[in-house]
Amino acid sequence: MSSNPMHLPRVYGLLAEFERPEELVEAARRAREAGYRRMDAYTPFPIHGLSDALGFGRTKLPLVVLAGGLIGCATALGMQWFSTTIHYPINVGGRPLASWPSFIPITFELTVLFAAVFAVLGMLGMNGLPMPYHPVFNAPRFAFASRDRFFLCIEAKDPLFNERSIRAFFESVGAREVVEVEE
């Protein structure tokens, strides 16, 4: 906080509250058109088209899950093949040691298990969760973001960040209330 001589809390961004999801999506789209880039919306349920309106790219999560599935598949097949042919081969009436058809059920199960674990940990990790503290929770009415209100936050990191012009912008798109969020 040495860069802040007056010990005032630094500003994280400006948070606008909307009553309807359509208003939020419209505001997000127009904010992007106006050139704002560092922003995020907070909603009580997933809203169609919102991440596109905010300009977020496609998530890489499916690739993470695919990698998890392949690792699980390789682990299971490799473990069964290694144990039956190299580590502890047992000759049962001359039957093949690498009897792959009977390895399929476990291979399938471990593929699913690894893919599911990667999906959950990948989603949490990319989202930066668990995150016990986040500045937006300082906004007085932010608890309604998990009930029935829709929020749009333009962050102070945005190159075009200017409190007065953003307030004017939020009012022009019909924000119900605009508050400053402290870091």
Partner: peptide, 25 residues
């Protein structure tokens, strides 16, 4: 809740993960 705040980007990844989990289950 692990600090879930309903971010639009989080919801997007969340929906993707949930759908993939359904497909795996």
């Amino acid at each position: 809740a692990m600090g879930w705040r309903g971010s639009a980007l989080h919801w997007y990844r969340y929906e993707t993960a949930y759908l993939l989990l359904a497909g795996l289950a």
